[in-house]
Amino acid sequence: MIEIRFHGRGGQGAVVASGILAEAAFREGKDVQSFPFFGVERRGAPVVAFTRIDSKYIRLRQKIYTPDYVLVLDPTLVEKIDVAKGLKKGGSILINTDKNPDAFSFGGEYTVATVNASNIATRLGLGSKSSPIVNTTLLGAFSKFTGIVGIKSVLAAIEGRVPVKRKENMLAARLAYEKVRF
């Protein structure tokens, strides 16, 4: 079973991202679960969401404490909170940032990937310049970085789940797929 944790801020679409990823994996025949951190959400406040993916039926319903992958939607969170908390040894972190992966060190046991999702999303008119919506962009990068879900499934899930600007969201995912660094 693969467990994934999303860190974002309220309004960036972390919860929606966890659902799109689940649906993308489901389209590839996997069993899936996605859920927000069971809390009260406010715009701008740190938000956590989760996805579980398995080739077998998923029974486990406890929270995710030791994820295999972490996605960080907001670069400022890296300094504010321990985004690598509980991450399994050999796990991977994908960060939305303009920096290169080697600018980050989480103790050396993890693989880091980066993509400037804010830039891609802003250029395509997803969210505003001050608060871009980077969730779909980051999922494109995640597909290339991890290979857990194919980009085709990610695009199909975006098309199925995103209510507005579907084309822009799909294009953003595709661009991030090309541009992710690791």
């Binding site: 649906e23 069993d31 899936v32 679960q33 996605s34 859920f35 927000p36 069971f38 998923i58 319903r61």
Partner: peptide, 11 residues
């Protein structure tokens, strides 16, 4: 159950 089922997505 609240959240554990109500807000959790699955097939």
């Amino acid at each position: 159950d609240a959240f554990i089922l109500s807000h959790t997505s699955e097939p």
